[in-house]
Amino acid sequence: MSIERPSNHDFPSEAEGMDLVYCRPETLTDLPFHYCPGCSHSVVHRVLMEVVDELNIQDKTIGVAPVGCSVFAYHYMNVDMQEAAHGRATAVATGIKRVLPDRFVFSYQGDGDLAAIGTAETIHTVNRGENILMVFINNGIYGMTGGQMAPTTLVGQVTTTSPYGRQVEFAGHPIKIADMLTQLPGAYYVTRQAVHNPNGVRKLKKALTKSFQYQKEGKGTCFVEVVSNCPSGWKMTPVETVKYLEEQMFPLYPLGDLKKPDGAK
């Protein structure tokens, strides 16, 4: 399938007497995102590519795209990308990193991918301490397939497969993957971030920059969870999802570094 990439951005190169302080990163392609309005996926795409731009590692970065809404991540990230079977992105990333150890390898997965079907791959990749960066988008729902219940769905959250809210007796408790991986010795840096406000985006950028630096030093697995939204799946407007994140998601998924190297700030 050939993808037409229209250059439909008429970004002004200069404004009178003013300096350019922020623009779309170069490593992001000109293709407009296909995500729903307000989706966190594209924010994470952009921040990831900003970090790649700033570290100047575009030609040395290999990403592994997941299955889910972000399956087309390779259309937007102008780095080498590989598609993986559902849940197996970290296994594919392991192979890439072992064959090409001088490259920067990251996997990018959602919660249906990483926390449900790919639980085994996730745990064993971290347990082996593979020297890769794992980006985990946790929005508590299967967004692409129509908003079904995921392992990370909150108790009482209404989805298409839990119309009366998730019940603990039937579906169990939401799984906290990042907390679980903290226990494994192979995990070097585990953090949970969000992109619901500008400060969250700044912190995520710092976390991703640190992760790539740790990968350069060969420290071990870096795991960055991003608690994000799904306006279409949650049946909310993007502005309402910010409130829902703050009131419902963050009490269960508190933000911050869960495991950081000794002596790190």
Binding site: F11, A15, M18, D19, L28, P32, R202
Partner: peptide, 16 residues
């Protein structure tokens, strides 16, 4: 605004 924009549609300029 540019940091939270999901479409990366915002370019920001500032006086030096």
């Amino acid at each position: 605004c540019a940091l939270v924009c999901p479409e990366a549609a915002i370019t920001v300029f500032r006086q030096p």
